[in-house]
């Protein structure tokens, strides 16, 4: 494809091809501070394609394709091409990864130990992780944590954090404008703006660490902390994984090891600052 670029995020390299120049230009700008890929051979290929050649120009809409496809995925307007590229990378990893156990979770590291935050969309895990990343933690990622079945360690996947709606302003107040991507309005999830992780997160993207705490946050409800049975954690993490079944016994080994070795709590919090304090409190109690 005429327009393309190669990006390295944590241990994975993506080759992105596009029928249009704009998404690739925006990707290059957003990923300008990322380390150059150390290898020409990408793990995954993403294609941003027009359905028909004339749709390059007329009502252009971006179809997200690649090595692994999800039938029936709807296209996005070209103005949201950057979002399409990000979704394409997520999709390739989610469907194609066969070494790391993938958990749909945000994560951050401090003192060589990893905190995993997992929950559905709207649980606030992206915002919490982004804030932790600005308050002395190393952000590992806001979308996927990659568990290495051989070591049990969590690998970073520090894509730009995709901030949605109200959380854009929360981070805008404390992060320099240069680290933000363009504001994307009217997406299927409302307003989206990408936040590039800081230098510590990017330079540390090849450094995994051992998980120490798993939290299941819930946003917008009165403050509460609940201990969880190991089997409940196990079930919820199989549901949060896109490739648990496909990894076979390696996935079983990785997940049972993670849940039996790592304490877990369900936390409810009414607002972001309370959530942040609660995370710090539970983290301190570990030591």
């Amino acid at each position: 494809m005429r327009q393309h670029c190669t990006l390295k995020i944590g241990p994975r390299i993506f080759r992105i091809g596009s029928d249009w120049a704009a998404p690739v230009r925006q990707l290059r700008a957003l990923y300008a501070d990322y380390p150059m890929p150390d290898d020409l051979i990408a793990h995954f290929t993403v294609r941003l394609e027009a359905a028909r050649w004339w749709r390059h120009f007329l009502r252009p809409s971006v179809h997200i394709n690649g090595d692994h496809m999800l039938p029936g995925a709807l296209p996005l307007p070209l103005a949201q091409g950057l979002l399409a590229a990000e979704m394409g990378m997520n999709l390739q990893l989610a469907l194609g990864e066969r070494h790391f156990l993938l958990l749909h979770a945000a994560s951050a590291e401090r003192n060589g130990k990893v905190l995993i935050l997992t929950g559905e969309s709207g649980s606030g895990k992206s915002t919490l992780a982004a804030l932790l990343g600005e308050h002395g933690w190393r952000l590992l990622g806001d979308e996927f944590v990659l568990i290495d079945p051989t070591t049990g360690h969590a690998w970073p996947f520090p894509r730009p954090v995709s901030l949605k709606n109200a959380s854009i302003a929360v981070l805008d107040a404390i992060v320099p404008p240069a680290r933000f991507g363009p504001l994307l309005t009217g997406t299927p999830k409302g307003d989206i703006r990408h936040l590039v992780p800081n230098a510590a997160a990017l330079s540390g993207m090849d450094s995994p660490a051992a998980p120490a705490l798993i939290l299941f946050p819930r946003f917008g409800v009165p403050r509460d902390v609940r201990t969880m049975g190991i089997s409940e954690v196990f079930i919820r993490l199989t549901q949060a994984s896109t490739n648990y079944v496909a990894l076979g016994e390696a996935g079983f080994g990785a997940l049972t090891r993670l849940v039996t070795a790592t304490p877990a709590r369900a936390i409810d919090y009414p607002d972001t600052m309370t959530g942040l304090a609660l995370v710090e409190e539970l983290w301190s109690a570990l030591a």
Binding site: G229, I230, S231, F234, E249, F252, T256, V259, T260
Partner: peptide, 12 residues
């Protein structure tokens, strides 16, 4: 392969 979790056992 069986891993006891709590009251439940995970069985692969």
């Amino acid at each position: 392969r069986a891993v006891p979790l709590d009251a439940l056992t995970a069985l692969y």
